[in-house]
């Protein structure tokens, strides 16, 4: 009996080496442990044995059975591995480059804009917007710059013809329609439509009738801020700008407010920046934005009582900031759209 079992296991082991597919595995399994399988037959022979022989033989059979089960388990792994290999095909060389295009990138002006907006959002400023084609009233008159005010000489303006009608900025009377020269017009629209207190930042495209060169562009972008509340002070202005500059240019950056003039703020300042981390522009005062307290006349023109409300406003050029942050020397790069430029800022 013992010999018979040993032969059985040896035969099965030899036969197993030829098994390669699942069908062969099933057939082999039937031949050994199926209802008429070789091992099954031996087990059936147990019934004829004496009471004394049974434990001895039983033990031998169990050992043979265990060997066969191990054999079958190993065969199953072998067959499954073969099946997986067939399903997946050739192996992958992980060192090959991916044939798919990489992610794209945001334009440096967009990145700079989002960075600036994120700084101001921390201070509770939310984004507001308005039309790019504006009425003269929203762009100038409401900002305390009536026609024939010399401040109109500070910028040259692109106008639309008299017949032009804007769906977004309808005329009140017969005022001119123009391409906004600053996003301050959004301040006007916000003051007219919202109840203070509020803090807004208005990023957007502006236009001037300027010849294009390394620092001038027919269109450019501004980010303007407006905070209307009770008792807004110059100290608040300094606090907001100080925070922004440190966020954008690092903790080493310092600012100074240099008195200046804008028709819509009083007092008015140019904010200069000085930083040790600006390459060849390091450690000198650079003019980067205009700011001030909102002129009471502007509040009045926009329907707010200057006795009750006060405000601060500031405006910066997005191109200027992006050029400083990234060390870009020519504004035209932003509008050429050479991907060798665009992808440097991903």
């Amino acid at each position: 009996m013992q010999q018979q079992l040993a032969q059985l296991v040896a035969a099965a082991t030899q036969e197993a080496s030829a098994v390669a597919t699942r069908a062969e595995l099933e057939a082999f399994k039937a031949r050994v442990v199926g209802p008429n399988g070789s091992l099954t037959q031996v087990m059936k022979g147990m019934a004829t044995l004496s009471k004394e022989e049974r434990p001895v033989v039983g033990k031998l059979i169990n050992e043979a059975k265990k060997s066969v089960e191990e054999l079958l388990a190993a065969l199953l792994v072998k067959v499954e591995n073969a099946e997986i290999a067939a399903a997946l095909g050739a192996s992958v060389d992980p060192t090959l480059p991916s044939p798919d295009a990489p992610a794209g990138s945001l334009h440096p002006l967009s990145r700079t804009r989002e960075r600036i907006l994120a700084s101001f959002r921390k201070l509770g400023f939310v984004v507001a917007d308005g039309p790019e084609v504006e009425t003269e009233w929203h762009c100038f008159d409401a900002l305390n710059t009536p026609a024939d005010h010399p401040a109109r000489d500070m910028q040259d303006t692109l106008y639309m013809p008299k017949a032009f009608r804007s769906a977004d900025a309808p005329r009140k009377a017969d005022e001119a329609i123009l391409l906004r020269t600053h996003t301050s017009s959004v301040q006007v629209r916000t003051m007219l439509s919202r109840k203070p207190p509020f803090r807004i930042v208005a990023p957007g495209r502006c236009f001037r009738r300027d010849a294009v060169d390394a620092t001038h562009s027919a269109n450019f972008h501004q980010v303007e801020g407006l905070w209307i509340d009770r008792d807004v002070t110059l100290a608040d202005l300094r606090g907001v700008l100080d925070f922004f500059v440190k966020e954008t240019f690092g903790a080493d950056a310092e600012i100074r407010l240099r008195p200046s003039f804008f028709p819509f703020t009083e007092p008015s300042f140019e904010m200069d920046l000085r930083s040790p981390n600006l390459g060849r522009l390091s450690d000198r005062w650079l003019e980067i934005m205009g700011c001030g307290l909102v002129d009471p006349k502007v509040l009045e023109l926009c329907g707010l009582d200057p006795q009750e409300w006060s405000g601060l406003a500031f405006g910066l050029g997005l191109e200027r900031i992006a050029m400083l942050v990234h060390g870009i020397d020519d504004i035209r790069h932003f509008y050429n759209n050479d991907t060798r430029f665009l992808r440097q800022f991903a």
Binding site: A101, G104, L158, F334, Y335
Partner: peptide
């Protein structure tokens, strides 16, 4: 669109 592989451009409005 950046995720879909596109690179952002900025052109003149005029």
């Amino acid at each position: 669109l950046v995720g879909a592989g596109f690179t952002e451009c900025c052109h003149y409005s005029l």
